[in-house]
């Protein structure tokens, strides 16, 4: 029987094996910048998933131009008045990052979804960019 955690572990390894990928090197504004980005291929299209926990949907701004997507926003944390803080690990601040992908995307068709602190950007490959099968005569 296939254990669900096995599937997770395989996926974790697949993610790790791509950590040193230079697929986007030089095109994405600073690796290690916030928010962290994972890019997946789903059929012909790309899906970028960003971790932005605690960021309000209204504080997220997404702009697209050609094959670049800019994600900016801010993360605020407010503590109720008069409390004493025991532990403060969560960070606040603003962010601005541009993701440029090495394929032509249909900027009009980009969709964004925000749920459980994850921002998913669906980047459809432009029709003109899809590979054609060349028949040998």
């Amino acid at each position: 029987m296939y254990h669900p955690l096995d599937a997770l572990f395989d996926f974790q390894r697949a993610l790790e094996s791509r950590f040193d990928s230079d697929w986007l090197r030089g095109t994405t504004a600073g690796t290690g910048a916030f928010p962290p980005i994972n890019v997946f291929q789903q059929g012909d299209n790309l899906v970028a998933i960003l971790e932005v926990p605690g960021v309000n949907k209204d504080d997220l701004e997404i702009q697209a131009k050609d094959n670049a997507v800019r994600i900016s926003g801010k993360k605020n944390i407010s503590y109720p008045e008069g409390v004493s803080l025991h532990r403060r690990e969560r960070l606040t601040g603003s962010f601005d990052r541009t993701l440029t992908v090495p394929i032509q995307i249909d900027a009009q068709g980009i969709k964004a979804e925000y749920r459980d602190g994850l921002l998913a950007l669906f980047l459809p490959r432009a029709e003109s960019d899809k590979p054609r099968t060349i028949r040998i005569n």
């Binding site: 669900p4 996926f11 790790e16 950590f19 962290p36 980005i37 994972n38 890019v39 997946f40 291929q41």
Partner: peptide
């Protein structure tokens, strides 16, 4: 984890 079904990682910066 089901959300990641059918997705092939091409570029990654964080693990899940």
């Amino acid at each position: 984890f089901s959300k990641y079904e059918g997705m092939q990682p091409v570029y990654t910066e964080y693990n899940i």
